[in-house]
Amino acid sequence: MGEALQQQLAYVGYGLYLLLILAGGLAAVMSTSLVRALMGLILTLFGVAGMFLLMNAPFLAFMQILIYVGAVSVLIFFAIMLTKTPEGEAGAENMLEWIGLRAGLAVLAALTPAIIMATLIVKKAPAALALKPEVTLAQLGEFLTGPFVLAFELISVVLLAAMAGAVVLGFERRKGK
C-alpha cells in the first residue's frame, strides 16, 4: 500500500474514532437514563481503544477493552442496578431542569479549561514526528519490572487495599445475632 494512501486512511480512521468518542461522550453526559449513559461511555471507550490502535499501541488497545469495557463498565452497571429505587430506574434525571443556570455553569466549567488548553496545544505544537516502531510486549515487561518496579508493586497494593476496602464497606452485620 502506498505511503500517501496509508496516511489518508489514517485520517479517515481518526475521524471515525473521533466520531465514536464524540457521540458516546455526549450520550454519557446528556442522557437522562443512566443505562444509556453507560452505553455511551462504552462507545467512547471503544473509540479511545481505536485511537490506541492508530498510534500503533495494540497492547494498550487490548488492555483498554479488557479493563475498561470488560471490568469497569460491569462495575458501573452493578452500581446502577443496585441503586434502583421503587419509583423506577436509578438516577433518571429531569431533562427540562438542565436548561438554565446550572447547564450554563456546567458549559462554562467545561469550556474554560478546554479553550485555554486547546490554544496552548495548537500554539505550542512541536514538529510532527514519524511514528516510532512498536514497543514490544517484552520491552514493556522489562520496563515494568526494571525502572518501574516500585510503581508496579504499589499498584498491586492499591488494588488490594481498594478490594479490602470495598469488602469492608459492603459488609453487613448479621441482624439479631
Partner: peptide
Amino acid sequence: AALLLLALGLYGITIRKTLVG
C-alpha cells in the same frame, strides 16, 4: 481528542446529580 474527553467529563461531573453519573 483527549481534551474533548476532559471537557465532556467536566461538563458531566458538574451537571450530573447522581453519584453514578
